[in-house]
C-alpha cells in the first residue's frame, strides 16, 4: 500500500515505548506491544490506566508525545501522516456506538465507502447487505439508530467499520454501555470476526470473553503494561500483586 518494507510476517501493529500526557497527567508511560496478523489481543486494567487512550492513538484520534506506533509499517506518529490511508486499514468501534442518528442502519454502513473511498454505489450496497446479515441484523436495514436497541446499534457500528475493509479492528469497551442482556449478541459478533481471522485489539472488562477469544492478554495499570501472557496462563498464574488484586476484584 505505502512505500515501506513491511511484510506480512512482521507485526501488523507495532507499538514502541509510547508516551502520552494530557496536560500534567501522564497517561501512557512507555508502552510497547506487538500484534501479529490474525491475532486477537485484549487489553484489560482498571479505569484510568490508559488503555482506551492507547488504542485511540493507534488510529490517530489522539496523538502521542514520543515513541512510535506503526500499522503495517506506516508510522502513525508523523506530522505528515496520511490519515485516510491509516483509517482505511484501521477500523474502530466505540463504547457509545456513535452511529449517525439521521441515517438508517444501511446508510450508516454505506456512507464511508461511498463518500470517503468513492466506491460505486451498487458494489457498496451489496457489501452493506452482506455485512448487516453477518452481524445478524437482516431485516433492520432501514431502521434508524433510534429504533434499535443498544446491542443492535453496536452491531451496526461493527458492520460500519467492516465496510471499509480494515486490516485491524479496534474495540474500545464496546459492551460497557449496553444492557446486560444485549452484551452477548455483540460479543458473539466480535467472536465470529475473530474466528474469521480478523486482527483485533480489544479494550474490555469482559474477562470471560477475553479468556475465550484472546490470543494474548495485556494488563495495564497507571500507564504501563504490568503483565501479559496467553489467557491460559495469565488468569491462573499472575505474578504481579497489582494484577492479582485486579483479577480478584473482577473475577
Amino acid at each position: 500500500m505505502s512505500d515501506n518494507d513491511w511484510t506480512p510476517d512482521q507485526p501488523l501493529v507495532s507499538i514502541r515505548d509510547v508516551h502520552k500526557s494530557f496536560g500534567n497527567l501522564e497517561v501512557l508511560k512507555g508502552v510497547t506491544l506487538d500484534v501479529m496478523k490474525g491475532e486477537v489481543i485484549c487489553i484489560i486494567g482498571p479505569s484510568g490506566s490508559g488503555k482506551s487512550t492507547l488504542i485511540r492513538c493507534v488510529n490517530a484520534l489522539n496523538t502521542i508525545d514520543s515513541g512510535s506506533i506503526k500499522v503495517e509499517g506506516q508510522e502513525v506518529h508523523d506530522p505528515n501522516l496520511d490519515k485516510l490511508d491509516l483509517r482505511k486499514k484501521v477500523g474502530m468501534v466505540f463504547q457509545q456506538y456513535n452511529l449517525f442518528p439521521h441515517k438508517t442502519a444501511l446508510e450508516n454502513i454505506m456512507m464511508a465507502p461511498l463518500k470517503v473511498l468513492k466506491q460505486p454505489q451498487a458494489e457498496v450496497e451489496e457489501r452493506a447487505h452482506k455485512l448487516i446479515k453477518r452481524v445478524n441484523l437482516g431485516g433492520k436495514e432501514n431502521a434508524y439508530p433510534g429504533e434499535l436497541s443498544g446491542g443492535q446499534q453496536q452491531r451496526v457500528a461493527i458492520a460500519r467499520s467492516l465496510a471499509m475493509n480494515p486490516d485491524v479492528m479496534l474495540f474500545d469497551e464496546v459492551t460497557a454501555a449496553l444492557d446486560p442482556e444485549t452484551v452477548n449478541e455483540v460479543l458473539l459478533a466480535i467472536k465470529d470476526l475473530a474466528q474469521d481471522g480478523m486482527t483485533c485489539i480489544l479494550v474490555t472488562h469482559e474477562m470471560g470473553f477475553a479468556r475465550e477469544v484472546a490470543d494474548h492478554i495485556y494488563f495495564t495499570d497507571r500507564g504501563v503494561i504490568v503483565e501479559h501472557g496467553p489467557p491460559a496462563t495469565f488468569f491462573t498464574e499472575a505474578k504481579d500483586p497489582r494484577t492479582k488484586e485486579f483479577l480478584s476484584q473482577i473475577l
Binding site: 484520534l61 483509517r87 466505540f94 456513535n98 456512507m111 464511508a112 457500528a157 460500519r160 467499520s161
Partner: peptide, 9 residues
C-alpha cells in the same frame, strides 16, 4: 470522532 475514524476529513 466516529466519522473521523471512518476516514472523513
Amino acid at each position: 470522532e466516529a466519522a473521523e475514524a471512518l476516514g472523513m476529513n
